[in-house]
């Protein structure tokens, strides 16, 4: 009885391979500039198709030591400054974002949907928030406080979303009520049971919002006025003032940072997965 069990159509037979191929080509297309930039940071020339004159650490020296070729300061001081500012933003997000994520996941209250929308949608672009900040608090722009507050506002959605997904995977009400019936007050329940149970989401949210804050350009560009530049401004100065190869070394610092963060997130994700088994 031929034809009774027909072979699949063309899309059924080759669809998967086709999608895989398109995906691989797209990833290759996106990854090549990153790899080329990183590789060229160790080259002394790039006039033709490929960089030449390997291997030199001169470009990295300009960036790390801060010879003044691209920016006035070394990447270390700029990175340290941004690390501190972004950490400040993360701390604010932990204090405000975690309770908001909890409230939205746990309770029914008037305006809950609106709180949720405002907390998880990055509504104001950095540039607009920056201008608004300068108009409202002109004195703050000389200190890092404006940057810290702005970073926390801009990156809050990533914290709230990561923590919320952790909360949503638990039976919050029953866990909270169990702890309270065992004699724990509400604050104690929140700090010793609820928050530790959402640890994976809190760590992931902190890392993501920190990384994005450390690299936030638009808001930093508008608000920053003098002193050590935040990392994003440092990178921008390198790109605009120095040769491409020098800028490549500066940008590679950021690539390495992203790679480290990605690895950290993977490890956290795997730990979460192991615990779930």
């Amino acid at each position: 009885m031929s034809g009774r069990f027909r072979e699949g159509s063309l899309s059924a037979r080759f669809g998967r391979q086709f999608v895989t191929l398109v995906l691989a080509l797209t990833l290759f297309f996106l990854a090549v500039p990153v790899v080329m930039t990183f590789v060229s940071s160790f080259a002394s020339d790039w006039f033709g198709v490929f960089p030449t004159g390997f291997v030199t650490l001169g470009n990295w020296e300009d960036v790390i030591v801060g010879t003044g070729v691209g920016a006035d300061v070394s990447v270390g001081s700029s990175l340290a400054y941004s690390t501190g500012l972004a950490l400040g933003g993360v701390v604010i997000n932990l204090i405000v974002g975690v309770p908001i994520a909890y409230a939205v996941a746990r309770y029914e209250f008037w305006g809950r949907d609106w709180v949720n929308v405002f907390a998880i949608l990055p509504l104001a672009p950095g540039i607009i928030l920056g201008v608004a900040f300068l108009r409202t608090y002109p004195d703050l722009s000389t200190s890092g406080i404006a940057l810290i507050i702005g970073y926390s506002l801009l990156k809050a959605p990533y914290m709230v979303m990561a923590v919320q997904s952790s909360f949503q995977s638990m039976d919050l009400q029953q866990i909270e009520e169990s702890a309270r019936s065992l004699g724990a007050s509400w604050p104690r329940t929140f700090l010793t049971v609820i928050v530790p149970n959402a640890r994976t989401g809190i760590i992931a949210g902190s890392i993501i919002s920190w990384t994005l804050a450390a690299a936030e350009f638009n808001f930093s560009y508008i608000v920053y006025s003098r002193g050590t530049p935040p990392l994003a401004i440092f990178l921008f100065n390198n790109i605009t003032n120095a040769s491409f190869l020098n800028a490549a070394a500066a940008v590679s610092v950021f690539f390495l940072l992203i790679a480290l963060v990605t690895i950290a997130l993977q490890i956290i994700g795997n730990r979460g997965a192991v615990r779930r088994i």
Binding site: M170, D171, E177, S178, S181, L182, G183, P196, N197, R275
Partner: peptide, 14 residues
């Protein structure tokens, strides 16, 4: 001072 056991047990996984 009540002992409570839920359907989901609600154990503290941390």
């Amino acid at each position: 001072n009540v002992g409570l056991v839920f359907q989901s047990y609600a154990l503290f996984n941390n």
